[in-house]
């Protein structure tokens, strides 16, 4: 079970991308992908980040593992600041910090065998003979539900779910402390999703890893996570214990998100239109609370002042002017 010891801490993370607007002489525009996100991931805990497209949740994950350099803010892994380390100094730390990709097709080199793919991190961090590595790789494969007979197969000989198992085996090969799971099941068929989710949960119980679980499927998030953070247009709008958050969502956006999920139960009320419109462009995000353009309860203050994240109950924070009391 989760302890309180922080293994990963993110402070005021910001990512702005420069893009050119249409035309040759178009002004350069700034995409505010992530704007000041802070949270702590504790040992053996699963923290989920949910949000729709454009929320910046995947960018947060990429900044943490060092695939995208942050514009501002810091990332601390087990007390050590890692966002400014540079490729060479970061390398030895990577065995503690791994990533599971969304796309089980593009994330495996089509020309490498399963054994070489899963053995790659081992080769980088563990010095051992080829035979030892093969044994260890075979053990990893069987741990994720693929037998040793798969060692010499290539990715295209696997189904989507099996490929995702390979990706998981690669990520856990070095027994990392933190695994960032970037939409790990959203590309899979429903009947295969459950297998992969169960595998991730089992592996966490076995190895005590912490998961940062990035997803858009609220049902999956509710099932796997201890705590849940909700992002909207680059900002964290609510973070709480999963059970508390799903029982009583406080931020109007979280409420709208949950009300929009069609329940697989025809006796439940029909779809209710929870919120109008779509997520605005991250190039010119609305001032004040970024949700105010779609919020049914927006007040004048919401249009001008950015609501800070405030503790509204023990362990429950939300960024909304209407909740300030």
């Amino acid at each position: 079970m989760a302890s309180t010891e922080p293994v990963l801490e993110v402070r005021d993370l910001v990512k702005h991308f420069a893009v050119r607007r249409s035309g040759w002489f178009g002004a350069r525009a700034i995409v505010h992908a992530v704007d000041g996100v802070s949270f702590v991931l504790r040992r053996a805990e699963t923290l989920a980040i949910v949000g729709e497209s454009g929320s910046g949740k995947s960018t947060v994950g990429r900044m943490i593992v060092g695939l995208t350099p942050p514009t501002a803010g810091s990332v601390h892994l087990m007390g050590q600041r890692i966002d400014q380390l540079g490729r060479r100094k970061m390398r030895p730390l990577r065995r503690h910090l791994q990533l599971i990709f969304q796309d089980p097709y593009a994330s495996l080199n089509p020309r490498m065998t399963a054994g070489r793919i899963v053995g790659e991190p081992l080769g980088n961090f563990v010095t051992e003979s080829a035979a030892e590595r093969r044994d260890r790789t075979a053990a990893l494969l069987s741990r994720v539900g693929l037998g040793a007979q798969y060692l010499d197969r290539h990715p295209h000989q696997f189904s989507g779910g099996q490929r995702q198992r390979l990706g998981i085996a690669r990520a856990i090969a070095t027994r990392p402390t933190v695994v960032v799971c970037d939409e790990p099941v959203s590309a899979l068929d429903v009947s295969v999703q459950a297998q992969v989710i169960n595998l991730l949960v089992d592996l966490q119980a076995e190895f005590g890893m912490s998961y940062l679980f990035i997803a858009h499927d609220l049902g999956v998030v509710e099932h796997v996570s201890d705590r849940t953070a909700v992002m909207y247009l680059g900002r964290l709008v609510e973070i709480a214990q999963t059970r508390a958050l799903f029982r009583a969502p406080q931020h109007p956006y979280t409420q709208a998100l949950m009300a929009s999920v069609p329940l697989p139960d025809p006796t439940k009320p029909r779809l209710t239109l929870a919120v109008e419109g779509e997520v605005p462009s991250a190039i010119a995000p609305p001032p004040g609370c970024r949700f105010h353009t779609r919020c049914p309860h927006a007040k004048p203050v919401c249009r001008t002042e950015v609501p800070p994240l405030r503790v509204i109950a023990p362990g429950h924070e939300a960024a909304c002017h209407l909740l300030s009391g």
């Binding site: 999703q193 499927d217 609220l218 049902g219 509710e222 099932h223 999963t242």
Partner: peptide
Amino acid sequence: SMPRLGAS
């Protein structure tokens, strides 16, 4: 096999 909202 579908995780349902509200199951927690």
